[in-house]
Design a protein around this nucleic acid. Structure first.
Length: 467
RNA sequence: GGCCCCAUCGUCUAGAGGCCUAGGACACGGCCCUCUCAAGGCUGAAACACGGGUUCGAAUCCCGUUGGGGCCA
């Protein structure tokens, strides 16, 4: 489908991918996919001291995990700012040749003094344009900005936002040492990559009028802007490490399925009617940048986990098995054949909010209980309990077929004849077989484990009782 | 400090002047179901920050205040 929509996600590789960044990437991706446009990944690595190869790897890795595929970007060359200095130099030269930018040699001490003076007067410091008409040929390159008037940023989320030129100054495009500034690089990059819509964090809104003026000076069409609100911590301060996990990778390790993370991030500040649970396809279909909220949103781990649970409950069996295997490996547990694992997960999926919990809650499927719940053992592993386990073993050995319905009939029959309630035999068996007081429906568990395994576990439990 | 953004239940949100005695979801409480734990069903408590306007009528429009956030330093 032909579309002029071209959007980008432009992270600085200074660490792991933050959930705020992930959400910005997601909104860009959804916008591109919804409109049949292109999603571009660009690495803003001009801060060489903090940008590392390893960090680029982390970002790529996180985006892949979330399945936010990009149409242009690394590993292809030309999508890192450090590879694009020629472009910045060329555009700077054009601005200077056209008289839209000029060199300034005001010493830092002078600027600092003026800044302090302005502060003392409780005013915003603005460079006064002293070097505008001095015709200098070296120094810091500044953009000539109109002294009067306003620049209006027509934001897709916020509507028109007006900035008075009196608040802006002739900002620096290229420093005296020849390095381009962040805002200048962004403009040149967006222009040369033919970006149609700039969807980014709210923290960039204040820089936008400066950039718009730069587009104008360069003679380029200004793209559309959409400034997405920030993700906040519980105290409504911008989400940071002190609020807990902020890296996308941390949620992967917690066992949140990627589709749940995507669903949660999308619903944080965006909605479509009363629907809460979305598949990726539904998100692409329903996403509209106009429905993105202009207010900041607090990150809520509980709701994330609820969505994680919903996606675990709804996942295709094979998909769920594939998601769980890495967690089995990490826990040092054996990975059963797929069909068998799917059957086990079928009994576990509504009992765990995360993939990690899924493994924990179903541990007894993968290994024999290492111990028994102490309080329950004290209550159930008695002389009478031992006798009942014996009777059960005897009958289970002869049960045919060894299926859940047959097991239930057996248990109900035995409970009746012993004058007991079903729960008495069930909890006793559950403890013997799983070591715990809570598990999926007992008869499903027994049928899945199989007769031989069940009988061995019952025998092991009886041995513990007599000891 | 200046400028900019934001403001509906604890949280995410619906709401684009009358449909609102403000809806949904998470979390929380109760009840039902039940071999345990879940899941599920029903149900309860819970919000339009404040003050002025505009209007027959405002959560919705305007102004101000307060509070939060961001950018510039």
């Amino acid at each position: 489908m032909a579309s002029d929509v071209r959007v980008r996600f432009a992270p600085s590789p200074t660490g792991l991918l933050h959930v705020g960044g992930a959400r910005t990437a997601l909104f860009n991706w959804l916008f591109a996919r919804h409109h049949g446009g292109a999603f571009i990944l660009r690495i803003e690595d001009t801060d060489r001291s903090r940008s590392t190869e390893e960090n680029i790897g982390f970002i790529v890795d996180a985006l892949r995990w979330l399945e936010l595929d990009w149409d242009e970007g690394p590993p292809a060359p030309g999508y890192r700012q450090t590879e694009r200095f020629d472009l910045y130099r060329e555009h700077a030269g054009r601005l200077r040749a056209a008289g839209r930018a000029y060199y300034c040699d005001c010493p830092p001490e002078l600027l600092d003094a003026q800044r302090k003076a302005a502060e003392a007067r409780k005013e915003t410091f603005r460079y006064n344009g002293r070097c505008r008409d001095r015709g200098l040929t070296a120094g810091a390159l500044r953009l000539r900005i109109p002294d009067v008037g306003t620049t209006v940023v027509d934001d897709l989320i916020h509507g028109p936002v007006a900035f008075d030129h009196a608040q802006l100054d002739d900002w620096i495009l290229v420093r005296t040492d020849g390095t381009p500034t962040y805002n200048f690089c962004v403009v040149v990059d967006d222009v040369t990559m033919r970006i149609s819509h700039v969807i980014r964090g709210n923290d960039h809104l204040s820089n936008t009028p400066k950039q718009v003026l730069c587009y104008d000076a360069l003679g380029y069409r200004v793209p559309a802007f959409a400034h997405v609100s920030m993700i906040l911590g519980a105290d409504r301060a911008r989400l940071s490490k002190r609020h807990g996990a902020t890296a996308v990778q941390a949620y992967r390790e917690q066992g949140i399925p990627p589709e749940a993370m995507v669903n949660y991030l999308a619903r944080l500040g965006w909605s479509s009617g009363d629907q809460e649970v979305f598949t990726r396809g539904q998100l692409v279909e329903r996403f509209d940048i106009k429905d993105v909220s202009s207010a900041g949103a607090v990150f809520d781990q509980a709701k994330l986990e609820w969505l994680s649970h919903e996606h675990i409950k709804a996942a295709d069996g094979g998909r769920l098995a594939a998601l769980v295997r890495p967690f089995l490996d990490a826990a040092g547990l054996p990975s059963p054949p797929t069909e068998r694992l799917i059957a086990m997960l079928q009994t576990l999926r509504e009992r765990a909010k995360t993939l990690r919990e899924l493994v924990e809650v179903g541990r007894f499927y993968f290994e024999r209980p290492a111990s028994y719940d102490a309080a329950a053992a004290a209550k159930l592993f008695t002389a009478a309990g031992r006798e009942r386990l014996g009777a059960l073993s005897e009958q289970l050995a002869a049960l045919e077929p060894f299926t859940a319905p047959a097991l239930e009939a057996l248990y109900r029959g035995l409970a009746d004849s012993l004058g007991l309630k079903l729960v008495d035999l069930a909890q006793l068996t559950r403890l013997a077989v799983t070591g715990r007081t809570a598990s999926p429906p007992l008869f499903d568990v027994l049928a899945l484990l199989g007769r031989a395994e069940v009988l061995e576990r019952l025998a092991a439990a009886r041995a513990v009782v007599s000891a």
